Amino acid sequence: MASKARHTDRRTDALSRERIVATAVELLDAAGADGLTFRALSAELRTGAGAIYWHVANKSELLGAATDAVLAGATTVAEATPEAEVRALALGLFDAIDEHPWLAGQLAQGPWKSEALRIFERLGQRVQALGVPGPAQFTSATALMLFIVGAASQNAANAANAAELRRAQPDASRTALLAGESTMWEGLDPGDYPFLHDIAGQLREHDDREQFLAGVDLILAGIAALRPQA
Rank of each mutant, 00 (worst) to 15 (best):
A214W: 03
S140A: 15
Q229W: 02
T37V: 05
A40M: 05
P190D: 11
A168H: 12
L178C: 08
T47K: 08
R204M: 06
E205R: 13
A224L: 01
A65T: 00
G134V: 11
L146N: 11
A179C: 01
S42E: 10
G222I: 01
A57C: 07
A152Y: 04
G180K: 14
I97H: 08
R11P: 00
G180P: 00
S60N: 15
R46C: 10
S42F: 05
E121S: 03
D208A: 14
L63S: 06
S173L: 03
A214M: 08
R118K: 15
A141N: 10
H100V: 00
P133F: 04
E83K: 08
S182D: 02
N155G: 10
A141W: 06
A163Q: 09
A176R: 14
L71D: 03
D208F: 14
A31V: 02
I20S: 02
W102R: 06
R17Q: 13
A49K: 14
V149I: 14
S173K: 06
A84R: 12
R17C: 03
A88M: 01
R10F: 05
I97Y: 04
Y193N: 12
A90L: 09
D34W: 01
A179N: 10
W112Q: 14
G201E: 14
W102V: 04
V127A: 01
F38V: 02
A72R: 14
E85Y: 00
V21F: 01
S182M: 00
D171W: 14
N158C: 12
K113Y: 11
I20F: 03
A84I: 02
V132P: 02
D68R: 09
W185I: 04
R126H: 13
H206P: 00
A2P: 01
E181T: 10
I148G: 01
I148L: 07
R11S: 06
Y193G: 01
L226Y: 03
A74Q: 06
R46G: 06
R6K: 13
V56G: 06
A136I: 02
Q125L: 14
A230F: 03
A40S: 11
T8M: 15
G35N: 09
L89E: 03
S153E: 08
L213R: 07
L27D: 02
D34E: 15
A108H: 09
G150E: 04
V132E: 04
G215T: 08
F38I: 01
T76D: 13
R118S: 11
D29L: 02
P170E: 08
R46Y: 09
T8R: 15
Q125Y: 13
A5Y: 12
R87K: 10
Q109I: 11
A179H: 12
D189E: 08
L15M: 09
A214G: 06
A51L: 13
Q229S: 13
I20L: 03
R39N: 12
Q106D: 05
